[in-house]
């Protein structure tokens, strides 16, 4: 469905991703974990075209899309929720949802968005920028339902969300995976990421150090300890 092959990418003169291959297929739940500054955001931005692939390839539905523009990739069904700022602050919540829908699903956009996040109903006519931090994140995530994607990429899914809502979001993501949509999440809380995913990539200093099922990763304690010591504590305690 969506694939990055031996991708090299970065900013200006610095190279961040050094030959990363990653794949998300239909109905698959994937998560990417790694310490701060490992290049997770860079990876997602490269997948959706915000950063050019310097060498290697980006393949969507079996077709080479290495040189495609961001909006063309988005039209092909790739939905990227960026880290921390996925809304247009000056527009109302309603206008945000309608824009997210693109030209086809405009009519039902608000209805679908609210069905995923009923908390926003009261705030439909509010400027998105004046929503609370968590409400903004919910609005950003509503794009997943509103835009009919075939693959969803979420950077820092639970940023600024209350624990209850985080639970809800992962339930919700689980549901859309079962509907046949591929989902890739980047997540600081490794516990959530591992419980959710059927395939895990561990990224470190711009290179993959692990790719496989989460339970196998659990068995490779040494590796885990090396890269994510702090996270391990957390995953044990819960």
């Amino acid at each position: 469905m969506l694939e990055l092959r031996e991708a090299v990418a970065g900013y200006g003169d610095s190279t961040v991703l050094r030959g990363v291959s990653i794949e998300v297929s239909a109905g698959q739940a994937v998560s990417v974990v790694g310490p701060n500054g490992a290049g997770k955001t860079t990876l997602i931005r490269t997948i959706c075209g915000l950063l050019p692939v310097r060498s290697g390839a980006r393949i969507i539905d079996g077709v080479d899309a290495t040189a495609q523009s961001v909006h063309a990739i988005a039209r092909a069904g790739v939905c990227h929720i960026p880290e921390g700022r996925g809304v247009f602050p000056g527009l109302s919540v309603r206008d945000n949802m309608m824009l997210f829908a693109g030209s086809d699903g405009k009519r039902t956009a608000v209805e679908r968005g609210l069905s995923a996040f009923p908390q926003l109903t009261k705030h439909l006519n509010q400027r998105a920028g004046s929503l609370s931090g968590g409400q903004q994140q919910m609005l950003a995530l509503s794009r997943v339902v509103v835009s009919n994607p075939s693959v969803v990429l979420i950077d820092e899914a639970s940023l600024g969300l209350a624990p209850v809502i985080v639970d809800e979001i992962y339930d919700f993501l689980g549901r859309i995976v079962s509907e046949g949509i591929g989902v890739l999440v980047v997540e600081q809380y490794v516990t959530h990421a591992l419980r959710f995913a059927s395939h895990v990539y561990v990224l470190q200093r711009g290179a993959l150090v692990y790719s496989g099922a989460p339970n196998e990763l659990g068995s490779q304690e040494q590796l885990f300890e090396r890269y994510l010591e702090g996270d391990l504590e957390q995953s044990r305690s819960t």
Partner: peptide, 9 residues
């Protein structure tokens, strides 16, 4: 928010 688990600690 935005800190990883180790940094939070």
């Amino acid at each position: 928010s935005g800190l990883d688990v180790r940094e939070t600690e």
